[in-house]
Nucleic acid binder design. Structure first.
Length: 155
DNA sequence: GCCAACGTTGGC
DNA sequence: GCCAACGTTGGC
């Protein structure tokens, strides 16, 4: 029996936004090229885990909505695509390097919870996202942090 | 556009 | 295995 985990996944909305996910309903979370982030998808995520969808490099920057892990990990097909900027010459079909999970749309928040708002919350002061220099594009979120963010979104 | 923080690469 | 050089992320 595995308890549910919570995650935060970053995307630049110019590349893929919460609106794109709302339209498509589900999407493979491709193009991650960081081992730590990949390992979360490959080893730690379970179908049904809840995901905070974060808009980085955006106006406003912040948490834009909710999603869910929708599949087991599978090879990221962009690593095999010679035309893709994410092509990886060291990856083979037999031994893929990069994996992704599907992410399913749940909801778009009525407003983006921007960084300044998140920083105001005492209960989020230890959140990985808010730590200086934290660039990891997939991060674990505690149940307490997740609950706090849901409450903020409902306000 | 700047730049701090971090990750990766590759020579040794 | 060390570490300098380089590339990327992402807030501002």
């Amino acid at each position: 029996m595995k308890t549910k985990r919570y995650w935060l996944m970053k995307s630049e909305p110019s590349a893929y936004s919460i609106d794109d996910l709302a339209r498509e309903k589900a999407s493979p979370w491709e193009c991650v090229r960081n081992y730590q982030a990949r390992n979360f998808m490959l080893h730690d995520m379970k179908v049904g885990d809840e995901v905070l969808f974060y808009h980085s490099n955006a106006e406003p920057t912040g948490i834009a909505g909710l999603a869910k892990v929708g599949s087991e990990p599978k090879p990221d097909k962009t690593q095999f695509d010679r035309k893709s900027e994410y092509f990886d010459p060291k990856a083979t079909k037999e031994s893929p390097r990069w994996h992704c999970v599907d992410v399913n749309f749940v909801e778009k928040f009525p407003r983006v919870l921007d960084l300044s708002l998140l920083r105001e919350q005492k209960s989020l002061k230890d959140m990985m996202l808010l730590r200086k220099g934290s660039r990891l594009s997939i991060q674990p979120v505690t149940a307490e942090e997740f609950a706090c963010i849901l409450k903020l979104a409902a306000k």
